[in-house]
Amino acid sequence: MKGGMVRGRSLSPASSRIAAWIAGALAVLCLALVNVGVYTYRIDFYFTGILVVVMINIILAVSLNLINGFTGQFSLGHAGFMAVGAYASALLTIYMEWPFPVVLIGAGIISALIGFLIGLPTLRLRGDYLAIATLGFGEIVRVVILNLKITGGPRGLGGIAPKTTFFIAEIVAILTVIIFSNIVKSSHGRAFVAIREDEIAAEAMGIDTTKYKVLAFSIGAAFAGIAGALFAHHQMFIDPRSFTFTRSIEILVMVVLGGLGSISGSIVAATVLTILPEALRGIAQYRMIAYALLLIGLMLIRPQGLFGTKEIGDLFRLGQRQGNEGRRAQADGGEGQ
């Protein structure tokens, strides 16, 4: 398409399209190999489970990125929405016995509604205040779950049918990525980015900033809820400890590492940060320390994350910097990175 919304000089549409094609082709190839591995049982049952978690984390990271990265509203409550989706879906499966796709959509709608109700008042707050308010929301969700009977309180909710297959997780993750890419590359996506860049100017350009902030929040919440539903039907057991503030931070680390405002960055970061701790299982107790150091280090050295606001396709331009447009970019320092 038109090369997306990119901080920094964007490519001429043609070369950007080629680069995006190459990146897309590589992603499809990886996914195809993984699928062959899973269905020929070359990838064992255990690792397939990890791949399901990768898909769930991709959905979580991409959806949080819409709120935190593209719209610039800092939410620390993503685990709360995930919890809403997880419990809602588990209850729908257990008591209503709905088919799984319907349960997933139901979980998404319920989380979106909660996101809407929470977002409407809190999104008037700015920056760090919003962060604390959403953190508070996440904690309230956790305490409510702890105190309700139907959720099993602190003992948790078990006996959830294992309906999240690798295939389903994969399909939902792919759909999520397509949906979010298409949103951010539309006029609606530009409205989100405009709010991040300058809320007052966005408002002066006719953008209903309140509506779009709540919209970003609700869409993000919906997909966090769907991810929670996949999680519940993968683990078969959920309890409030799965959805603490630490979980919100884990998702945040993925978004920040990949780049606030880069969907492909979130995909890469979610994948790496899910598989890497498994590969280094011997030092599992250092995982949160590593996350903490990663957050601090990133902010000090590369606050824009690995990809900044760019997508993988845009990174291929390194090779053509010396082109006629690139020379000017260097001359006027337009890179800004």
Partner: peptide, 26 residues
Amino acid sequence: LRNSTRIAALITAIGVSFLIQNVALL
């Protein structure tokens, strides 16, 4: 980070909090 965005500083502060907590846990 004094001249960077407030969100960058907030993320760092969260990182520091997690670092202290997890080192203490260890």
